[in-house]
Design a protein around this nucleic acid. Structure first.
Lengths: 192, 192
DNA sequence: CGCGACTGTTACCGGCGGTAACACCTTCGA
DNA sequence: TCGAAGGTGTTACCGCCGGTAACAGTCGCG
């Protein structure tokens, strides 16, 4: 099998995994993905090593578009508050569009956690997002690295947790959720 | 078997589960817990229904002390900022003291999620914490319920996520983490 | 004594992640 | 032309998980 064919095959396997994850979320099993792709399990394992490897490759796919959407939002706004609002909005829109994919990204399955692939690539989507945000904060505000790191992880966790709750309850409209979160970030709790 | 004996037995089973969870975290299995308790699996299932039931009972145990510690912190401080600082401090101290227990509480295993017990009792420790905080915020600040709910879940997620990162990296001292998070909550991001 | 109710066990089920072992080409050198 | 080599694919298994059926022992009670 040529290299090009191998790459194409790998993409088609990821397509199948994509369909199953969209249907089953984090509970997607290797056997069902292999079935969807019309092949047997060992082929999957020869391509991706273990479940963590496949998940990492798939996460890589999903992460790309979301990260660029967030970057765009962060560079588009008029002022800092507007940029934050757009980024939160983009994040919530993405998780609302594909809830199963979101759960797959955020709730890493506890199994296969020793894999090197997994540690290198996913290390939980949250971590990458937080690290990226921390870099942005350090660069834009000029605060010390440790402070930026804490804030990055804190802010990501805040939006993520609120988004998780919102996905399950739909207790408030998205626009209101965005506003409340932005208010919170900009000190409304201190002055309420 | 008398009622008292049943209760005592249940407590001893929870003691065993406690020991295993402290050792294995969320990966604790029913078989190993039964082994630790010196009995066989069906007894465990007769007492707690399913894994979710046992986890809920155990979570109830753990949650109690932490929740009261947080309540104490929230009622002890001089002003609002001091209270928040004490609460964050209490939370981080607790998760540092028993990391495996913390992971068990926060990262609910994906299996056995359809159980009624689980839905009633754990529903993920995060949710209960957030709801309680939302109530407190609504009562103290007099903000609308929806705003308090969003803030409750957001704040809990923020502290939780930062704490999770801190547990793994130990990148900053606990006292600094507390200060950075409190600063963030009190609007330092807007004015930095 | 015999009967039921309760406590306990062993041994199983289906499904999971992961793999060993083997069948089937295709290719290529003697 | 034959046969070894090597990649591609499959089936069938392993151990572990959560969960349960079915059976054994025991105690009280008519």
């Amino acid at each position: 099998m040529t290299v090009a064919a191998r790459v194409a095959r790998r993409e088609s396997l990821l397509d199948a995994a994509d369909r199953i994850v969209r249907r089953d979320g984090p509970a997607a099993s290797m056997a069902s993905i292999a079935g969807e792709a019309g092949i047997s399990k060992p082929i999957l394992y020869r391509h991706f090593g273990d479940k963590g490897g496949l998940y990492a490759a798939l996460a890589e796919r999903y992460t790309g578009e979301l990260l660029t959407a967030l970057q765009d939002a962060l560079h588009a706004g008029r002022d800092r508050r507007d940029r934050v609002e757009r980024a939160v909005e983009a994040y919530l829109a993405a998780i609302e569009r594909q809830p199963q994919v979101y759960r797959f990204l955020v709730r890493p399955d506890d199994s296969a956690d020793g894999s090197v692939q997994a540690q290198l690539h996913v290390r939980s989507f949250t971590r990458r997002l937080a690290a990226q945000l921390a870099d942005g904060i350090a660069a834009e505000l000029g605060v010390p690295g440790s402070r930026a790191a804490v804030w990055g992880h804190g802010i990501v966790g805040m939006v993520q947790s609120a988004g998780d709750w919102w996905l399950e309850t739909a207790a408030v409209p998205r626009a209101e959720l965005v506003r409340e979160l932005t208010d919170l970030l900009f000190g409304a709790y201190a002055t309420a």
